[in-house]
Simulated scan of single mutants.
Amino acid sequence: MKLIVALVLVAGLALGGLAIRMAQSQIGQYQSDRDALLERVKQMPRLVDIVVAKHDLKYGQRFDKSDLVVTQMQADHIPAGAFSLISAPDKSADSKRAVFADTENRPRAAMRAYLANEPILASKITPPGMDAGIAAILAPNMRAFTMTVDVQSSISGFLRPGSTVDVYWSGTINNTLVSKLIYPNLRLIAVDQSVDSDRPEITVAARTITAEVSPEDVAALTLAQSSGKLTLALVGSGDTTDVGAIEVNRDQALGITPEAIAPQQKTCTIRTRKGTDVVETQIPCPQQ
């Protein structure tokens, strides 16, 4: 009997030790999995709140707080000018991060088309109560200047709001025809009274273009437009090359050199007959 009890006790101790080792192994696995999960969480990008459109918005469409929703996006992927709050108390620390003030009931308008779940950007919406248009685009102390576009120009059908052009002036200086670059990299804000940069591609030639310029540039461009002809050259997207000063006169454009236009010296001759031969002799030309 004592032998049986001893055997049972030994077997129990062995099973208990095995159970302890199995439990320790399982706990160790759990701890390893936990540590790996915590490490993965540390490596995951940080998410922050961002305000997006709840549904599609067309250019010029008004929207209010009910048309927006807050979602999350990676912090390092947030576009400039995005909002993190739909509304916040006016003049509070959070007011600059909000689309609307809590007390604001006037709608804002989309200055470009938005797709559902697309982030709302401060530069692409109007202030509360203002409709989309040129006035909503102009920066402080800037002016909208409209120029007539030559419909025969090959680029007039390719101009769109947001396009960049070089402006050339052609006219007469000191009785010589001259063409010169007077305004490089001029950004257009409207084409034919439309500021919608998302308008469908069309081939209709533009008749007027509007640019954002300083008051001083308004005076200069007005004088240039009244004293000669303005021609636009479309600048490629992303082209930031500084072309420098460009001025070409008629002779340079046509390759005419001073020697080519210098008057040829007049020569005078007389013919005399000697027998059957006629001899031509050069003499001074008579003064007129």
Results as ranks from 00 to 15, higher is better:
residue 6 A to V: 09
residue 7 L to A: 14
residue 13 L to D: 06
residue 14 A to M: 09
residue 16 G to S: 11
residue 16 G to T: 13
residue 19 A to P: 02
residue 24 Q to I: 07
residue 25 S to L: 05
residue 26 Q to C: 05
residue 32 S to M: 03
residue 32 S to R: 07
residue 41 V to A: 14
residue 43 Q to M: 13
residue 45 P to I: 06
residue 59 Y to M: 02
residue 63 F to E: 06
residue 68 L to G: 03
residue 69 V to I: 15
residue 69 V to W: 04
residue 71 T to L: 10
residue 81 G to S: 08
residue 82 A to C: 10
residue 83 F to N: 04
residue 86 I to W: 03
residue 91 K to A: 14
residue 92 S to Q: 09
residue 94 D to P: 00
residue 94 D to N: 12
residue 102 D to K: 10
residue 105 N to D: 15
residue 107 P to A: 08
residue 127 P to A: 14
residue 133 G to Q: 04
residue 133 G to H: 01
residue 139 A to V: 06
residue 150 D to L: 12
residue 154 S to E: 13
residue 159 L to Q: 04
residue 159 L to N: 03
residue 169 W to S: 01
residue 170 S to L: 05
residue 170 S to R: 08
residue 178 V to G: 02
residue 182 I to T: 03
residue 183 Y to I: 00
residue 191 V to W: 03
residue 193 Q to Y: 11
residue 197 S to T: 07
residue 197 S to L: 11
residue 198 D to I: 09
residue 199 R to N: 06
residue 206 A to K: 04
residue 210 T to E: 03
residue 212 E to T: 07
residue 213 V to S: 04
residue 217 D to R: 12
residue 221 L to D: 09
residue 225 Q to I: 00
residue 228 G to Y: 05
residue 235 V to P: 03
residue 243 V to G: 05
residue 244 G to Q: 00
residue 247 E to S: 15
residue 256 I to P: 00
residue 258 P to E: 01
residue 261 I to K: 15
residue 271 R to V: 15
residue 272 T to S: 13
residue 274 K to R: 15
residue 278 V to Y: 12
residue 279 V to M: 04
